[in-house]
Design a protein around this nucleic acid. Structure first.
Lengths: 219, 219
DNA sequence: CTCCTTTTGTTGAAAATTCAACAGACATTT
DNA sequence: AAATGTCTGTTGAATTTTCAACAAAAGGAG
């Protein structure tokens, strides 16, 4: 586990837990590391949620696919970020989302029953872990609200602008890469891909933005 | 506080906390009770999040209003349910939502700094509170996913059907009341009100549903 | 009961999205 | 270098939503 220490130290779950305690805790939690190819489904919709995931390298997508096959992308998570924590903590018997490898990636899996049910009174680190989990879910909720702010707009152009404005704010720059190709961006914004392409074209002509591939610049 | 005990015992924040401990804790947390008229804005978008709210009587709406005045309703919360917990816990300096009284209502407000920063190592109930807060946020995240499942549909009819199907499941019956009038339902589903009315009319004619005011029946 | 306000249903026209199909650009593999 | 597959932009037609305006219905206050 030592090779992942630098990544794990940045993980919000382990905030304010010392290195040696962190390593001991991982043993106590029976943490496992697994490797996945790009596009591999790490957790599948409909299955029970048992594990909390932590991205160690690469990135993952959290997606919802409905009855007709329409995909919604809910989030992209990079190294040291956590996924499926809410479902694991709520102990749901059917995941409402899938988690898919966005690149070849390594993931740490922690059986959530160890987090919720074991030794919760004995171990000090454990209390800190619960606290960190709560903080993490709070910030995830805020991420959700940002996404809703974007997707609640009624037109493709408004959604795109809301998204780009948010990205610009996060990158603290008018020039940035987005983590999506066109189809993925459409599935994040919940619009039609071809309509999105057309809209991007129009906005370029109107001098609102410049793009090349994943790179966007607001003007 | 005693008069609210029965409501508070059902509140997920106080799960597995004994009555006398609960009352003592409320003192320790400096909990206050306030009363609001219908439509009063309890928390306003843009202000710092300081308090966790608990509905004691009546109900509240959590809403997002964008630059152009378009309203999105995110959730309706009834007695013993919690609101603004995620923003309080994340200590955001600008609330991304407003909370509005849906009826005349009583609300308990708890300064979240008391929850997060004080006596977290001394008091046993406090550890339970943090744990409950984590559980509560996990279940809120699941509610969010349900809403996304509804609003990610592309047509008014699909959104409405997805919503009604979910309600039927929750009520365990094909016949139920919804907590919205038509405008509010439109703002929850993120569609146009007049289009929604028209769609409901069509679905009645096609024999898919029956309605009278807030009451719906799936056929 | 009557007046007044709010809510709901209806309509038609304008605007936007979706859908399917295709062609060019690009990257990768053989 | 050729072949293959994926991604992107473009188009036009069909569908759907939005918008504004109005009328009918329901509810509340006096």
């Amino acid at each position: 586990m030592k090779k992942y220490l630098e990544i794990l130290k940045k993980c919000p779950l382990f905030y304010q837990i010392e290195d040696e305690n962190l390593l001991r805790m991982l043993g106590c939690l029976d943490a496992k590391v697994e490797t996945f190819d790009k596009k591999y489904t790490i957790f599948a919709e409909g299955y029970p949620a048992k594990y909390i995931g932590i991205v160690l390298s690469g990135s993952v997508q959290v997606v919802q696919v409905d009855y007709y096959g329409n995909r919604s992308i809910l989030s992209i998570l990079n190294a040291s970020q956590v996924f499926a924590e809410a479902f694991a903590c709520a102990e749901v018997c059917s995941l409402p989302v899938s988690v898919v490898a966005n690149d070849p990636c390594e993931v740490m899996l922690i059986d959530c029953s160890h987090v919720l049910h074991t030794c919760s009174n004995h171990c000090d680190f454990h209390q800190q872990l619960i606290f960190n989990l709560m903080k993490d879910m709070a910030s995830k909720t805020i991420m959700f609200h940002q996404r809703i702010e974007v997707t609640s707009k009624r037109t493709t152009r408004e959604k795109l602008m809301a998204y780009l404005a948010l990205q610009a704010k996060e990158h603290d720059s008018n020039s940035f890469d987005i983590p999506f190709d066109r189809q993925e961006l459409a599935d994040y914004l919940e619009v039609d891909r071809s309509g999105l392409s057309a809209e991007i074209g129009k906005m370029k002509k109107e001098g609102m933005i410049e793009t090349q591939k994943n790179h966007f610049r607001l003007l």
